[in-house]
Amino acid sequence: MIQICEMTVEGLPSVEEIRSPGPEVCAVDQMRQVLDQARRALCGRGTLCRDGITQLWRIVDDIARGRGRTGDIALMQDLASVMAVAGDCPLCLTCAQLLQASVECHSEVWNGHIDRRRCEVLACRGCYTLHVDPAKCAGCTTCAASCPVGCIAGGQGLIHVIDNEACTRCGACVSACPQQAIGKAGAVKPRGPEEPVPVGSFGGGTVRRRRRGRGE
């Protein structure tokens, strides 16, 4: 490390916490949060720190959004190794080490995200869809009003339907719904109407369906 700055960040996970993140924590999502925190904290004077952390964050964010590319892991490892040797500050070094530990210990998780857009715990935006449970929806329109991109169809007394092509997975509707009717789904999608239908007019149950690509 060729230190030019003292920057450290409180509250970043330890290498141990990266190696065993515990249940319900996705390694990719964890790393994304680490890097986002770091990029918001860094002072900006050194290239490897400023642009290195930003670059790692861009790549991990892409992976979490289902836009990972073959070769991303190798690129990140390469970048991290340079940052570890010539980085500017403790923060930069820490990010490099945490990233290296994460991709070493959780290579299946990382590759699953990149190759199959698969996030076991449904933490990464690119790996799940959001659905209104037709059995719980009260047709109150709260979710539609809360959606910043306006991708929820419905109306008073109708079962609401989310357009997952347009949805950004911001989660606003999930917390807005008074019935807790909105939930995530991975490869297994719940059954629901294609279009809004009156509340009570749709039968329950789930159906196995092939996920549609979003073509990005």
């Binding site: 642009d51 290195g52 340079v82």
Partner: peptide, 10 residues
């Protein structure tokens, strides 16, 4: 390698 990486980042 360090130089080229730094340059690529810029």
């Amino acid at each position: 390698r360090i130089r080229r990486t730094s340059m690529e980042l810029m």
